[in-house]
Design a protein around this nucleic acid. Structure first.
Lengths: 241, 241
DNA sequence: CAGTGGTCTAGACCACCTT
DNA sequence: AGGTGGTCTAGACCACTGC
């Protein structure tokens, strides 16, 4: 639809197909502008896209080059570094289920107030779910959400996907997230539900997730047995900053 | 120096100072263009900067709005999510030292060949270092680097900072990184050097780090006692993608 | 110094939200 | 329909690289 996206797509295909080889330079911008019958500004916007995806790097005064070893990076098509919620991480070939351990509404703790930027009198959901993949326990999730921001959560939603509900039913857009990953010793519940021994470490991902307008809507901890999960991220360079 | 960066800086200050309040809209682009005596395209580039930093969000046809709760995000000034190497993570008030446990050159293992994209006959450094902060053991680092990419590593460099050496002496630019974070049980060396018991979990960060041209130069594992380290990231939304 | 990419302009048209 | 942001242009000048 938009020209610069189309051009970016074409250029990506050329890199993928080997027409533009790793380590070599692309045609210069003026040439590309002529080929695509457009202006150089539009070519720049297309190149910004490839830059952000880590496919090229630019050297002022010299040229635009294809990065080496990008085959590896394009493999990891996880849109933004393992996005939200277990439901999306597994294909259709796996059954993701949830068992609700506790579900209630209360006043937020001091910690939740601070994370979610709510006051004591703004009620929150407190949800503890065991996530199962193909009927095997996978993770223990502790979630706190403000009732004002995400109204209408019920058992049915919890058994499906909270994220689907937010995006499809409430028509809200998920924005950014702040995460802290740590290791921990297993507590009573971990040992009970994750089937682990006192010496089995726990990998915990704590996160605060924001809507696109910056309102925090989830404060959660996901705990997994050490041999059941890893957390992977790809951090691009800082091209435009 | 560059106009759009200057404008972005001014706008950031206005948001910080409360002149543009959270949740309200900025002046429209035409107005901003007049005020800064520039064109709308330049205003757009300035807004791109704020967008990438998660300070604003844009709604086509409506306006440009200041995100809520950005006070939290701007606190975390870690440039790109806890950048590289222990040396840069601590201010001048702390002493970061390294104790070299082993240092040799050999042929790469299969795993290292795959991660670094080198062949068996391309020699690599094998480095094991204990990192100390204020003389307290902090992390155990296993590093593999191709000798061809990073020539001239020696004891002196290892006791200081490899990253300083790469950037200042070799004049190379660090690009992206691919990381995997996991929890693990402590092994013999962990227990010996990190002063931990067999039941103390280990937080491990494994990473492959690339130069800006996409060449991998480091494959490493950093291991810490569970109560000595966390890994934090901020993941912005995906504004331009 | 020539050639490249980076920035900037002044205006145009389009897509979308709001009424 | 009016107003907003998103895209696009054709050309200009500047900053940097590399001979």
């Amino acid at each position: 639809m938009t020209k610069y996206i189309d051009i970016a797509t074409t250029l990506k295909q050329r890199i993928n197909s080997g027409q533009y080889k790793a380590g070599t330079s692309l045609p210069q911008q003026k040439t590309l502008a002529k080929e695509f019958n457009t202006s150089r500004m539009t070519i720049q916007k297309a190149l910004d896209v490839l830059d952000n995806e880590g496919l090229i790097y630019r050297v002022q005064g010299s040229g635009i080059y294809v990065k080496k070893n990008i085959n590896f990076l394009t493999d990891m098509k996880i849109p933004g570094n393992q996005y939200f919620g277990a439901t999306h991480l597994f294909g259709k070939s796996h059954h993701v289920k949830s068992k609700i351990i506790t579900f209630n509404i209360s006043n937020p703790t001091k910690e939740a107030q601070n994370a979610l930027k709510v006051t004591y009198d703004q009620a929150v959901y407190n949800i503890v779910r065991l996530r199962l993949v193909d009927d095997i326990s996978y993770a223990l999730e502790y979630t706190t959400m403000p009732t004002q921001v995400i109204p209408g959560i019920n058992q049915e939603v919890l058994l499906d996907s909270i994220y689907n509900y937010i995006q499809n039913n409430l028509n809200l857009t998920i924005g950014s997230a702040y995460r802290t990953i740590s290791a921990d010793k297993p507590d009573q519940l971990d040992q009970q539900y994750l089937n682990c021994l006192p010496v089995d470490p726990i990998l915990q991902v704590q996160q605060i997730v924001y809507l696109d307008d910056g309102v925090a809507f989830e404060f959660s901890r996901t705990r997994q047995r050490f041999d059941k999960g890893k957390y992977t991220i790809f951090e691009a360079g800082h091209p435009n900053l």
